[in-house]
């Protein structure tokens, strides 16, 4: 069976420093895939290679082969802008635009020309907010600023914003690290609901979270992929000593 994303022998350098060593990983359409590991292990860096967000760092250099539905995303013909529309991203800190809630969600469809009129755009906004579980909370104040929402709501707004451009994959970079436990629970629930519709890759420093939300888990350490497999296996029956040490709290 073909995978949604195939990454093969990926190396990432920041200037002289190598941040990712020889990582190969396949991500499936139906799964939530979690990247775990101690901070600085390269899990976020690797995540950002999947939609070429590393392009914005001048010193970053990516080697290797990453394919989305078999298409090389680092090839010359790939339009980065189109790629990022297909591979959406949610960031560590909620970062809504300092615009209205409506505009936050409508921005993506607008620049990609996904809606041919106001009515269609309204539909997309409503659908995205509904899928992100935010619609009932904000439907009466769509023109309020997105920055006026609470942290958890802001993060769900960012998810709605990512959904609005109809992506195939959603990358989440520690989406709950700035949130309280209740907001975190809402996001986890949401990830659960979104599973299947979008391939989801989530980076987390929280092992319980990885265990709760994901089907596949990859453990990164010092820029290397130590172990990758079913979440259950990783947590109950790791093959590698380093994985065992990490999940039992020896370091990290």
């Amino acid at each position: 069976m073909s995978h949604k994303i195939n990454a093969h022998n990926v190396n990432v350098f920041y200037g002289e420093k190598q941040a990712i060593r020889n990582v190969s990983i396949d991500v499936d359409q139906e799964d939530v895939t979690a990247f775990i590991g101690p901070s600085g292990c390269g899990k976020s860096t690797f995540l950002r290679t999947l939609n070429r967000m590393n392009d914005t760092v001048a010193s970053a250099r990516v080697e290797g082969d990453i394919r989305l539905d078999g298409e090389d995303i680092y090839s010359k013909d790939m339009d980065v802008v189109q790629l990022r529309a297909r591979v959406g991203m949610v960031f560590q800190k909620p970062n809504p635009f300092p615009k209205s809630i409506y505009e936050n969600v409508a921005y993506g469809p607008r620049i990609h020309g996904l809606a041919s009129g106001k009515a269609e755009l309204d539909t997309i906004v409503e659908q995205s907010l509904t899928r992100a579980g935010l619609w009932s909370e904000v439907k009466d104040r769509l023109s309020d600023s997105g920055t006026a929402l609470s942290g958890g709501q802001q993060q769900r707004l960012c998810i709605a914003r990512a959904i609005a451009v109809d992506p195939e994959v959603i990358l989440m970079d520690e989406p709950c690290s700035a949130l309280d436990p209740i907001a975190t629970a809402r996001i986890e629930e949401l990830i659960h609901d979104l599973r299947g519709r979008y391939a989801i890759v989530i980076v987390t420093h929280n092992m319980q979270q990885a265990a709760r939300v994901s089907q596949k888990t990859a453990f990164f350490h010092l820029g290397e992929l130590v172990e990758y497999g079913d979440t259950n296996d990783i947590f109950t029956n790791p093959r590698e000593q380093r994985t065992t040490d990490y999940i039992t709290g020896r370091y990290g």
Binding site: T56, V81, Q82, R84, F91, N95, F97, P98, Y107, I111
Partner: peptide, 27 residues
Amino acid sequence: VPPSIRDAALGVGASPVQVVFHHVLPL
């Protein structure tokens, strides 16, 4: 202008020029 705004716009597929003229410049 915080870099997170640029990330957010790039993340939904805005081109660098769109990031600047839609978000950075107004702010």
